[in-house]
């Protein structure tokens, strides 16, 4: 599945990054040091965290994308950094569970 396809099926919005990025597997969680060890490369990482530190975690783990769920939006500096680092960020009104079901 690509970022674009994920955004389509979940009714989410792509804020930055490459829509054609290929994605596989998923991790759901909001604690950064758990995500750090659990997120595998190309994973969809679903979280409600919206601060700049999620970009570092996604970049260091080679996550496929960050999906910020439950209607939250990334902080401005997080979005800027994600653009610089070419990290795909998708926002969605849906819950983590509902998004994961659709992957």
């Amino acid at each position: 599945m690509t970022g674009k396809e994920l955004a389509e099926v979940t009714g989410g919005k792509i804020l930055c990054g490459d829509p054609e990025r290929s994605l596989s597997g998923c991790y759901i969680g909001d604690l950064l040091s758990l995500a750090m060890s659990r997120v595998q490369s190309d994973n969809v990482w679903i979280t409600i965290q919206s601060n700049i530190n999620i970009v570092a975690v996604a970049s260091l783990t080679d996550a496929g994308c960050i999906v910020i769920c439950d209607g939250f939006s990334p902080d401005e500096d997080a979005l800027e950094k994600a653009k610089d680092e070419d990290i795909l960020i998708i926002t969605s009104e849906k819950s983590a569970y509902d998004i994961a079901k659709l992957i």
Binding site: D30, S33, L34, S37, T47, Q49, N51, N53, I54
Partner: peptide
């Protein structure tokens, strides 16, 4: 901000 799981040092050990 998402810190404080108490998993940082265990991660350092593990990896």
């Amino acid at each position: 901000l998402g810190f404080g799981a108490g998993m940082g040092l265990p991660n350092m050990k593990k990896y």
